Computed example of a mutant assay.
Amino acid sequence: MDKRYIVIGAGAVGGVVGARLHRAGHQVVLVARGDHGTALRERGLTVHGPAGADTVPVAVAAGPQEVELREGDVLLLAVKTQDTRAALAAWAEQPVGPDGGRAGARLPLVCLQNGVENERLALRHFRRVYGAMVVLPAAFLTPGEVSTWCGPRTGVLVLGRYPDGADDTVREIAADLTAADFRAVVAEDVLRWKYGKLVDNLANAVDALCGQRPGAESAELAARARAEAIAVLERSGIAYAAPEELTELRLGAVERRPSDAGAGHGSTWQSLKRGGGSAEVDYLNGEIVLLGRGCGVPTPVNELFQDLVNRWAREGREPGSLAPAELAELVGQVDTP
């Protein structure tokens, strides 16, 4: 049966991955609603990158009701974590093929998402769940357009079966992604890689609040959040990929290239910029807060970042409008011995 990729959530990551798979010769359906879905139907998906703009005339659906699922389909879940429950509920019960078997029982689902909660949620609905650690610098700010700015590869992905292991399905998916301009690696300990990336992603909150300002203050704020995370993971006995491993994986694959493709802001900054009232901070900094409360390690910096980003999302505040010195003062008030 021919493989087809159904990309649930055609934002920055989902859009770029779907476009690259399409250009590599695979059947792809991008799932998107609202103005973005309309733009994709009318004009296709435009991917801006170091080599210029490429418009991809890929198939588009607003949701599962517009897709006739079949054997051979692979579901790529690329929504933000706060939208995962709704997406899983919508897709898991969809019929597959002429006998109408459930998608949750018949089709593999790959979580192309930040954090470590998505796979656990997915396993309630799908028998075959695969995790992916995603390093894909990309942006989605304009309907019908996504941007990416690295080379020589578009991104790096570490994939494996959840909670652990590997099989022929994930090896085939990794091979397809490799042919589609990604460095795709199969690992039997994918969660270890995802926890390592979680530590890395804690800096997204600083970017969302302060933007990308020169100076060491922002880096120090991010380092405080990461130090809390490492203390929590080690107390909890949770294995995580070290920063040196992540750096080695990126080396020679995702290096910033001169480009007008985008500002380079993280996904949390982009969520605030687009509006919509939510961000995935509860599953990044908030994950560390949750784990810290469970193991008795204080996480005041991550708790502050979680609260601030959530407040800014609710209030529709402009990302990057807080000076690092102001954030450092707030951190000083909560980060006491």
Results as ranks from 00 to 15, higher is better:
Leu69Met: 11
Leu69Ser: 06
Glu71Leu: 11
Glu71Trp: 08
Gly72Pro: 08
Asp73Phe: 03
Val74Phe: 00
Leu75Gln: 05
Val79Cys: 03
Gln82Glu: 14
Gln82Ser: 04
Asp83Glu: 10
Asp83Phe: 00
Ala89Leu: 14
Trp91Cys: 09
Trp91Phe: 13
Trp91Asp: 11
Glu93Met: 05
Glu93His: 05
Glu93Leu: 07
Gln94Val: 10
Gln94Tyr: 02
Pro95Ser: 07
Pro95Phe: 08
Pro95Ile: 09
Val96Met: 08
Gly97Asn: 08
Pro98Tyr: 06
Pro98Leu: 12
Gly100Pro: 02
Gly100Ser: 05
Ala103His: 01
Ala103Val: 05
Ala105Met: 00
Ala105Phe: 03
Leu107Thr: 07
Leu112Asp: 08
Leu112Ala: 02
Leu112Arg: 02
Gln113His: 03
Gln113Asn: 06
Gln113Trp: 03
Asn114Glu: 01
Gly115His: 02
Glu117Pro: 01
Asn118Phe: 02
Arg120Gln: 13
Leu121Tyr: 09
Leu123Lys: 11
Arg124Ala: 15
Arg124Tyr: 10
His125Lys: 09
His125Ala: 15
Phe126Pro: 06
Phe126Arg: 01
Arg128Phe: 06
Tyr130Ser: 11
Ala132Tyr: 02
Ala132His: 05
Met133Pro: 03
Val134Trp: 10
Val134Asp: 15
Ala139Gly: 12
Phe140His: 15
Thr142Gly: 06
Thr142Val: 15
Glu145Cys: 02
Glu145Tyr: 03
Thr148Ile: 00
Trp149Gly: 09
Cys150Val: 14
Pro152Gln: 12
Thr154Ser: 15
Thr154Lys: 04
Thr154Asn: 05
Gly155Asn: 13
Gly155Trp: 10
Val156Pro: 06
Val156Ala: 13
Val158Gln: 09
Val158Tyr: 10
Leu159Cys: 04
Leu159Arg: 04
Gly160Trp: 14
Arg161Asn: 04
Gly165Leu: 15
Ala166Arg: 11
Asp167Gly: 11
Asp167Cys: 13
Asp168Pro: 03
Asp168Phe: 02
Asp168Thr: 09
Val170Gly: 00
Val170Phe: 03
Glu172Gly: 09
Ala174Cys: 11
Ala174Asp: 12
Ala174Gly: 11
Leu177Arg: 08
Leu177Val: 06
Leu177Gly: 07
Thr178Asp: 12
Thr178Cys: 12
Ala179Phe: 05
Ala180Ser: 13
Asp181Trp: 02
Asp181Val: 00
Asp181Thr: 03
Phe182Gly: 07
Phe182Asn: 06
